[in-house]
Design a protein around this nucleic acid. Structure first.
Lengths: 230, 230
DNA sequence: CCCTGAGTTTAGCCTATCCTAACGAAGTAT
DNA sequence: ATACTTCGTTAGGATAGGCTAAACTCAGGG
């Protein structure tokens, strides 16, 4: 049986693999991300390796096997469908959905998953712009171009905002910055200085200053001539 | 901390107290209802007693304390709100909601509870006609008159149908029998024989034969001249 | 070539919950 | 009154997960 704890490990390994550009995930990084001690992580990795859900090269790191990745993607799918459902159907604020979804994601049955999916009209991204894996376990591409890489004058649509910090999400929402919104970078100040951005293209639209930490949470996608999915 | 397991024990003790007309609940009955061994129940009762959530008179039985009853009612409220929400908002069949709600009931936050409650328009009964405890921990009266106590010719509204057996619920729904439906008992056959019932009062309405086991799951309330809550 | 330090693993233990087997108490029947 | 039967409790142990302390590995500096 795959327990809730195992699902959490697999999900987190998946996330760290994504962030880490392919290298195996270290025990320490995993333990920290899960807020457990390193020995606890080692112990669980052994169990997961026995179930062929991860490949564990002692002292070198872990990688998900295809089976493990499938489980991870199911959990991520449940998480993101829940986030979407809580926001769209129950009126949650976008900064509040992550925590709630984390608690519920391990208990979503196939039936509930299917009904939420249908009620939402088969969404492809969650409220933060993160792509929702398909039922078959395919993760669509995510918006991955950091806002700070846009040159002055360049513009695009906000594709995704990291869901890690509710306070940042509230702040950004207060500025009108969330996925789907058009953004123009007016100026990128040197020495890791702030970005001057304009919401939309219109010269009269509101402008804001974003520090680098905040900007790092925002990922852009190309402006879409034929306004597509929501 | 009150664990999920503890909540399950408290909920079950509450249910058995209700069914058992006030006598303390026996360890064996509790263990059986929870599908655990008697020693497991004894052990948990000790812990619950230490937390002052139950009063455990060894070898005599358990009773909920007011604090324990409060916890039990919260769990029941979550369960019944979930059942209602799954049916009304997500289109679940009424025989499928119980199992799903059992899994989710321990993870419902105050926020989620409030939002489901509001989305449903502050319902007072769940899809089986069971009353939903208030946020303050008050359990409204349930329809408690067994169908079989109606004399021939007497009629009333179905107030509640026991949610224990999905197969029975499906069968009854197939006959058009669920809470709120008017029912007339045409005849009660002797020696625990079946009941002849008519759906509604109209002489042309469909009639059915219900065995005693099935009839025992149905509880009636008085016909309400001014059609009230739904 | 050894030493040191970062990071990982092993060893040993804790808590929660469950189990089976054996014991004890309380009521029933002779 | 004594023995049987039923039910609950104690005793002892398993499993899942987590923790701290100590040992190990390996890469890089001396």
């Amino acid at each position: 049986m795959i327990s809730k704890a195992m699902e959490d490990y697999l999900k987190t390994i998946y996330k760290l693999e994504r962030e880490g550009r392919g290298e195996p995930v270290g025990t320490g990084a995993l333990a920290e991300a899960l807020a457990v001690s390193a020995p606890s992580a080692t112990g669980m990795l052994k169990k997961l390796a026995e179930l062929h859900l991860v490949e564990h090269n002692p002292r070198r790191g872990v990688t998900l096997t295809p089976a493990g990745e499938k489980v991870a993607l199911e959990v991520v799918r449940h998480h993101r469908l829940l986030e979407s459902y809580l926001k769209e159907a129950l009126g949650y604020d976008w900064d509040a959905v992550h925590e709630e979804a984390d608690r519920l994601e391990h208990l979503v049955s196939d039936e509930l998953e299917a009904r939420m999916d249908a009620a939402l009209g088969y969404p492809t991204v969650d409220p933060h712009g993160d792509p929702i894996p398909t039922r078959e376990g395919v993760m669509p591409a995510a918006a991955s171009r950091p806002l700070a890489t846009l040159a002055g004058g360049e513009s695009g649509l906000i594709g995704r905002v990291s869901d890690a910090d509710p306070a940042k999400l509230r702040y950004l929402a207060g500025l009108g910055l969330f996925p789907g919104v058009a953004l123009t970078v007016l100026e990128t100040l040197p020495f890791n200085g702030p970005l001057r951005v304009r919401v939309g293209h219109d010269p009269g639209a509101p402008e804001h200053l974003l520090g680098r930490e905040l900007a790092a949470d925002i990922f852009m996608r190309a402006e879409d001539p034929a306004g597509a999915s929501g």
